[in-house]
Amino acid sequence: MSEQTLHHPANLGHHFDTLDQQHSANVLGMWVFLATEVLLFGGLFLAYFVYRTVYHDAFVEGSHHHNIVLGATNTAILIVSSLMMALAVRSAQTNNRRALVLFLALTMVFGLSFLGIKAVEYKEAFDTHQVPGALFQYEGERPELARQVEMFSLLYFAMTGTHAIHMLIGLSIVGFILYRSWRGKYNAAYYTPVELGGLYWHFIDIIWVFLFPLLYLYGRHVAVGG
């Protein structure tokens, strides 16, 4: 790190006094934004809990339609990508540019794999008519539950879909940071964007940590015919 970086930081905004102030302001801003994200997903979580309470049997049946192997694999993949992201931030903190680039690239690889598997699951749902709306067909043994199972599948698509949109946004952010890292823009003295991108990425992971048991595991121990 050059003397120049220490005394006239090029990355310091005109309205901040120190890089430290700037860094902590940015991190706080990200956390405030993530609080809004919790409540954005919150609307869907609420809808899920309301209908799960009212349509208990249908939700048990609905969660059986989803492939638990793919779901669990995806959960693991997302955890790996989170680890990669954490190591990427650590590489920036320890001034290791090559490792930073490598780990960011791996984060993206695992993130894309997650979306790939998700696409396979979506296709499966289309093929078995588990998508809500005109294509939906109920194949179970209790036709009176048809509407309610459709509600489960609607929530499944709404929640995983909103999550997938966030994955796409996260991937573009990581891609941008990867490009900038490759250009050598970040170092131990200035890595705020890497940290912020990391926070966003881990947040997406946290949402999935809750979605997985709600959508794939609910009532698994109950045998459902059909």
Binding site: V32, F33, A35, T36, E37, V38, L39, L40, F41, G42, G43, L44, T162
Partner: peptide, 9 residues
């Protein structure tokens, strides 16, 4: 920040 996202969704 705590209310607006709920309207959004």
């Amino acid at each position: 920040i705590l209310a607006t996202p709920v309207l959004g969704i």
